[in-house]
Amino acid sequence: MCLAVPGKIIDKQDMLATVDISGVQRKVSLMLLPEAKLGEFVLIHAGFAVQTIDEEEVKKTMELFKELEQYADK
């Protein structure tokens, strides 16, 4: 019940946004995420943006995965 993908908002017209997902573009509704801003990354599920993606956290996660040996069992 959870198929969702991250995408970047490249256009916003009131409650309708255009998102870019690795080059693929789609219109999604912002009815559930009205505060979403142009340029933000959001999680998209069945044509709706449902959550903002924290880019800082993305960076941290990627760093963590790359440097796992350092973070080994604290």
């Binding site: 995420l33 009205p34 959550q51 924290d54 941290k60 996660t61």
Partner: peptide, 16 residues
């Protein structure tokens, strides 16, 4: 899944 899930979730979606 901190990059997607905040502790509060999406309050507006829950409200709707």
């Amino acid at each position: 899944y901190g990059r997607v899930v905040p502790v509060v979730g999406n309050p507006i979606a829950c409200q709707r």
